[in-house]
Design a protein around this nucleic acid. Structure first.
Length: 401
DNA sequence: ATTCCACAGGAAACAGTGGTCC
DNA sequence: GGACCACTGTTTCCTGTGGAAT
């Protein structure tokens, strides 16, 4: 009897040889207790939002911390607790959360706020209005319903960037909104990964936005280890994660930025790998493998998500490794010709190259060649096979790979 | 000491899309 | 149906640059 490979895997999965008993726990945001190592910060955040309980407007608040330090979770937890208490006292506060990285435009961010305040499509169309008009409608809504709104703006550094790029001073207007409100109030909670982002802001905004500031320090390796241990206790069957594996996991994530999110991802993937290999323990090797796999996945997804011209540029670099912008550009032009697409200007391609460089798929090095001018030499950081593998599904590219 | 290369990369303008408002 | 708006991806124009060659 020949066993079908699909059946074999399904049988194995069903036979209960899994060492992860609750997968959900292995996601960063799952248990509120992820942030139990953040008691000081929890207190600080609560302190500064306390005025809400006394029915007055709290100070604006800025929260800093590197990714995976639990800052968003803390803010959300505190606010939801406050909201719960306030609900009983029938003092209407309205919590509004938005992430400026997900809402890629100023307009989108404001609309997302408006939606959460209960403005429907007819009051707040998804496009077409002037930003100042959207703003006015939001303020009117707050005033009309005598709301005490709290806007939580996650990754506010992105918003600051948008503001400086477009010249529309949304942040300034938001901080001054209370002067225009007669019935309601508006408080801001900004969350940022970047401690230096304030430099980009208008000083007037800084003074009112930064009324209170709280910094989340990075987790150290010991703390990450504790966090992992707690998760492992609940998510894995007992004794299925070897001590060295745990240590390595904490070291890898702690060494980077003290990123608990990454640590938890790592142990989850390692656990899944171990299961797939029918191993009953998660070993150091699994963690190493997981770390590598996460890297590769990142590369693959970012490669796949590039639009056509970016892909052509990457292929051009691949065909002429270690070459200068000029060479890449002519190689790119040739590729455009073979696939029958109009080529973009060199200026645009230089820009693309720096964009791709940011993602880490290629690296560039500025070289001065005396009379031969200066140029930037690029090369791939991933293997050409990887590129070929991910691009081979793309019909337009099939001929040139 | 000057010149001059081969670009880097900033700023602004533009075209096109998809929408509102009156 | 024309004026206006936001936004994206691009083009156009531009200034700046370190060191080999002269």
């Amino acid at each position: 009897m020949v066993s079908d490979p699909i059946d074999r895997l399904l049988d194995a999965a069903e036979s209960g040889k899994s060492i992860i008993k609750n997968r959900d726990i292995l996601h960063f945001t799952y248990i509120p207790d992820t942030i139990q190592h953040r008691t000081v910060e929890q207190e600080q955040v609560t302190q500064s939002l306390l005025p809400i309980l006394k029915h007055s407007r709290p100070s604006n608040l800025l929260v800093y911390g590197k990714p995976g330090t639990g800052k968003t979770l803390v803010v959300k937890k505190v606010l939801s607790k406050i909201q719960e208490r306030v609900r009983k006292s029938n003092f209407p506060i309205k919590l509004v959360y938005s992430n400026s990285k997900e809402e890629t435009t100023l307009y989108g961010l404001l609309v997302s706020f408006g939606r959460q305040l209960g403005l429907g499509e007819e009051k707040l169309p998804p496009t077409g209005l002037a930003i100042s008009e959207v703003f006015k409608r939001i303020l009117n809504k707050i005033d009309d319903e005598k709301l005490n709104a709290i806007f939580v703006i996650d990754e506010i550094d992105y918003l600051a960037e948008l503001v400086s790029k477009t010249g529309k001073d949304i942040l300034y207007q938001l901080t001054r909104a209370n002067e225009r409100l007669t019935q309601g109030s508006l408080a801001l909670v900004g969350i940022s990964n970047d401690l230096t982002f304030k430099e980009k802001l208008d000083p007037r905004v800084i003074s009112s936005l930064g009324e209170e500031e709280i910094v989340f320090t990075n987790y150290d390796v010991e703390q990450i280890k504790k966090i992992l241990e707690e998760r492992i206790k609940d998510a894995f069957i007992p004794n299925s994660v070897e001590e060295p594996a745990l240590n390595l996991c904490a070291a890898l994530a702690g060494g980077e930025h003290g990123d608990a999110r990454r640590a938890i991802d790592l142990i989850r993937v390692a656990g899944e790998l171990a299961e797939r290999q029918q191993s009953d323990k998660v070993t150091k090797e699994h963690v190493r493998e997981a770390s590598q796999k996460i890297e590769e996945n990142k590369e693959e997804t970012s490669l796949k998500s590039y639009p056509l011209h970016e892909k052509l540029v990457i292929l051009a670099i691949m065909k002429a490794a270690g070459s200068s912008t000029g060479e890449i550009y002519s190689s790119y032009k040739a590729l455009c010709k073979t696939v029958g697409r109009d080529e973009l200007t060199q200026r645009r391609i230089t820009q693309m190259l720096s964009e791709i460089e940011l993602s880490g798929i290629i690296t560039g090095r500025l070289v001065h060649q005396g009379i031969h001018g200066r140029t930037k030499k690029y090369k791939l950081t991933i293997t050409p096979e990887m590129v070929k593998k991910t691009f081979k599904d793309d019909l337009t590219l099939q001929d040139i790979i």
